[in-house]
Design a protein around this nucleic acid. Sequence first.
DNA 1: ATGTACATGTAAGCGGTTACATGATTCA
DNA 2: TGAATCATGTAACCGCTTACATGTACAT
Lengths: 174, 174
Amino acid sequence: MSMKGREVILGILQGGPHTGYEINDILQTRLSHFFDATFGMIYPTLKKLEAEKLVTKQQISQTDRPNKNIYTITKAGQAAFSKAISEPTSDEILKSDFLMHLYFSQDLPTEQVALFFKEEISRKEAKLATLQAQLATWLENGMTDRQQITFDYGIAYYTATLEVLKKAAKSIAS
Amino acid sequence: MSMKGREVILGILQGGPHTGYEINDILQTRLSHFFDATFGMIYPTLKKLEAEKLVTKQQISQTDRPNKNIYTITKAGQAAFSKAISEPTSDEILKSDFLMHLYFSQDLPTEQVALFFKEEISRKEAKLATLQAQLATWLENGMTDRQQITFDYGIAYYTATLEVLKKAAKSIAS
DNA sequence: ATGTACATGTAAGCGGTTACATGATTCA
DNA sequence: TGAATCATGTAACCGCTTACATGTACAT
């Protein structure tokens, strides 16, 4: 079994105490090319983790901004995380709704397929830009060599697939 | 919302009647780089689809092999599929347990990380080989130009990521 | 006026996973 | 003798999605 939201959140908290909002931010900017998270998953998971005593919550009252909860990993949490990270890795999974549409698009008009391409290319370019924009800040705040590999992987993945997409988009238009 | 198992199975049945076993085979060989399916999902989905009258079942008794059920899409099923395929496409999602391990691997010994790399490279090479091996048969049985793009995408994706992985594996070993 | 950043939560339910159960035939 | 191919299913459960609910401050 692969690492779930539970273990991923513990992993982020290993790097220091954070609020749910900050956890989401890290996930969206640095891990978004290989994990997808939403608040709907983050907050309930944090609650469960607290109930299991794998993290502790510190409530901070703020006047100008909404109150916040800062979560800190416990010893038990660190043990749970160490165990998870040592487990063998499982298969990578790619789910592409765009490729699925394309695969079964025989009865769709060219214009509609062209629109699907346009949208997928935009989304990927945006994702690539977000990742590239992160590099500077990330290097300043401390990026390990191993994390750099996950970054390179993301760049290569977006670059290679965008190239196929752009070539194909041209060919179907003609 | 993206296409779920339900719509994917309807899409395959648009191409002709099939058993659950055959549906799995198509999914594993031609769509495995952008969709993941298991029997645990296929059979229950087929059952629901039949209950909703989107497909019909024909039972075939066999003596030398297990009996089988051949499913055929109905008009209502075709309508449901047409609707689904016309919907806008949603974001691609990549889940990589390997990259997650790598991202959080600071406390793991080099040898263990090296093993993770080795396993991930093997898995990806196997996937790439399966896809490439399909090409000939697929072209014979009829492959649309649009399906060819999904194939090219898979090859590019595996090739580019394998390259990053192989380079990185060398660098961490030293 | 509109959007973005900050900030947290719940309830219902879906869609899939995991584990189990069965069994003949053919090929190496 | 073991593995692969053919072939189908169920039951329990989990993990996440979706939709909803709320509110301030600041910038454009």
